[in-house]
């Protein structure tokens, strides 16, 4: 296991969030959880994360809004952000990339190990 990466996991569906967080912790990541857009912004401002996994459809503040805030704030703009979405929200992915997302994951197509792979790839020194 490489360095202990700090991940912020933003997902409103509790059972999904729990499984992702549980798995990633077992694999050695430090994981903070947020259940809505506001909580995500609060946490991202309070401390530095290596990567944010960001659900797009969120209560309170929409995922794309969160992304916009993170990417326009000097304090957080270098934090990698991967969008979490389900199939069929194709335009959302494009919008996300336009705002500055670093990647996306389609929840119904992936398993927890694939999330781990994506995170490691995104954070490996040669990727940046």
């Amino acid at each position: 296991m490489g360095p202990k990466y700090k991940i912020l996991l933003v997902e409103d569906k509790e059972s999904l969030r729990t499984v992702y967080a549980e798995y990633l912790r077992m694999e050695g990541f430090v994981v903070d959880e947020a259940k809505d857009g506001q909580e995500a912004l609060d946490k991202a401002m309070a401390q530095k994360y290596d990567l944010v996994l960001l659900d797009v459809m969120l209560p309170k503040v929409d995922g794309l809004e969160v992304l916009k805030s993170l990417k326009s704030n000097p304090q957080t703009k270098d934090t990698k952000v991967y969008m979490l979405t389900v199939l069929g929200r194709d335009t959302v992915i494009k919008e996300g990339f336009d705002i500055g997302a670093d990647g996306y994951l389609i929840k119904d197509k992936i398993t927890p190990p694939m999330i781990k792979e994506e995170i490691l790839q995104a954070l490996s020194p040669k990727a940046s």
Partner: peptide, 21 residues
């Protein structure tokens, strides 16, 4: 409808995966 079905399907899939894991 398809979109609404996706969320529970995704959750069940992940739970099953975690169960095996």
């Amino acid at each position: 409808t398809g979109h609404e079905l996706k969320t529970p399907v995704t959750i069940i899939k992940n739970n099953l995966w975690m169960f095996r894991y």
